[in-house]
Design a binder for these strands. Structure first.
Length: 422
RNA sequence: GGGGGGGUUCCCGAGCGGUCAAAGGGAACAGACUGUAAAUCUGUCGGCGUACGCCUUCGGAGGUUCGAAUCCUCCCCCCCCCA
């Protein structure tokens, strides 16, 4: 099975792109995938209405699967979200209501559809992806029935040796959380039974859960299935992906504007560029290798390419180009500033005394408090139309309006335009 | 059920009657330096106010005191040991 020109196989591409950490049986999986289409899945948390950058890796894992002629399934844990994965977490996850989860599922489905050709229900093409809610089989499962059918296949002794559990022995974990791996293994079992699914991809922290699923499939379905893990992605500075001052970087344009999304990628650490190009874009290896040759300040070009590609994948070509133009306007001169975050204001607001700069900064959300705004001014971090503001009492008046807008700048990177009408 | 140790500002972690908006570190933000990078140095880092200041915060609710994160009572939660 090979429909990709650049790579002989899915596994080869996953390796080249840095998605390959560990595989339960690489040779067997490779052979299986070479003989025909295979169904594989990855899981997503429906803890919010939108996915964020952290989900991009499993998403891309599914994208590559589909591009290699296999069928991807995105399983969204509508059932398991009510439990919570113990690994890495110090606290019990807050529980979501069914209504919350259903709303989140709808949002996530729309986002996944941007990446994967989805076609649920009858009439789906054989390789079209599916999004499945494990609540379908988990919510109505009776406890006794579940224990008898599934529970008997699990050894507590073995469960206790899993890292996800071991790491919690000090701080403690609830029985509820302890069950997470069983529920997850059950997902694999059901996907195998109902969809012939034979592969699970997940983060390396999911290795234990994946192995549990494989064992369960073997015992109950007598099916040989496989697992493949990707490394947990951290930035060069050891941070989790997608954390910024403003919080998580979301895929939803309403939560993180395409411009801010674009900027996130432009601002990644030099050391991360190569890795990210491989993981988060679909650029051909030759193109990526060219970009990887760039040195010093030229690395910025690679970052722009990265930002442009990822933003295109998530928000579309037009939004990506507009973000690029806006970034050029903000940082280089030239370019079209339209995509820079802005807010609308009436000309009358600027008449006479005008507006307090401090108040405006807080009102448009550039700062969290007026105290922060004042501090910023004191430290010389605020500019109006390019000129540093020295006076905390600064007011924005009619004279500050240039070509229908007032350009605000915080620090070196944050920009906001006040659009003034009439 | 018994005994012991804990819950502090975004995180870790000091404080243990006033000098505490609370040490120190990390994160974050700003400035310098740069390449919209990193590293480094400097500054800032609860809210409101130009400011002497005022308000809110140390698991929760009461109480003692001129005054509490610090003492007392009850409650909730976590960890360890014993049963």
């Amino acid at each position: 099975m090979n429909v990709r020109p650049d790579f002989p196989s899915y596994i080869a591409e996953m390796k080249w792109r840095g998605f390959f950490e560990q595989c339960t049986d690489e040779a067997a999986l490779g052979e299986l995938m070479a003989t025909g289409p295979l169904t594989g899945y990855a899981g997503f948390d429906p803890t919010a209405e939108s996915l964020h950058i952290g989900s991009l890796v499993p998403i891309m894992g599914l994208v590559h699967l589909q591009r290699h002629g296999h069928r991807p399934i995105a399983i969204v844990g509508g059932g398991t979200a009510m439990v919570g994965d113990p690994s890495g977490k110090t606290e019990l996850r807050q529980m979501l209501t069914v209504a919350d989860i259903d709303r989140n599922l709808a949002g996530i489905r729309a986002q996944l559809a941007r990446f994967i050709r989805l076609a649920d229900g009858p009439g789906a093409g054989p390789l079209d992806g599916l999004m499945i809610d494990n609540g379908d089989w988990l919510r109505d499962k009776g406890y006794i029935e579940f224990l008898r059918d599934i529970g008997r296949h699990f050894s507590v002794n073995q469960m206790l040796t899993r890292d996800s559990v071991k790491s919690r022995m000090e701080t403690g974990l609830s029985f509820l959380e302890f069950n997470y791996m069983i529920l997850q293994a059950y997902d694999f079992l059901m996907l195998n039974r109902d969809y012939g699914c034979r592969l699970q991809v997940g983060g390396s922290d999911q290795w234990g859960n994946i192995c549990s699923g494989i064992d369960l499939c073997r015992r109950v379905n007598r099916a040989e299935v496989y697992g493949l893990t990707y490394p947990l992605i951290q930035t060069a500075t050891g941070e989790k992906m997608g954390k910024t001052a403003a919080g998580a970087v979301w895929l939803d344009a309403g939560r993180t504007s395409p411009y801010d999304f674009f900027q996130y990628w432009v601002n990644v650490d030099d050391r991360d560029v190569s890795r990210f190009l491989r993981m988060y874009t679909l650029l051909a290896p030759a193109a990526i290798e060219e970009l990887e040759k760039l040195q010093g300040a030229d690395i910025r070009q690679a970052k722009q390419a990265l930002a442009l590609e990822v933003t295109t994948l998530v928000h579309g070509e037009a939004a990506a180009q507009a973000s690029l133009a806006a970034a050029q306007a903000a940082f280089g001169g030239g370019g079209d500033a339209a995509a820079i975050p802005s807010s609308a204001h009436a000309a009358s607001e600027f008449a006479g005394e005008g507006l307090s700069l401090i108040d405006v900064l807080a009102a448009v959300g550039l700062v969290d408090s007026k105290g922060e705004a004042r501090r910023l001014v004191r430290q010389g971090g605020v500019k109006v139309n390019g000129d540093a503001v020295a006076d905390e009492q600064r007011r924005l008046v009619a004279a500050d309006i240039r070509d229908g807008r007032v350009v605000l700048q915080l620090g070196k990177k944050r920009h906001h335009h006040l659009r003034v009408d009439g």
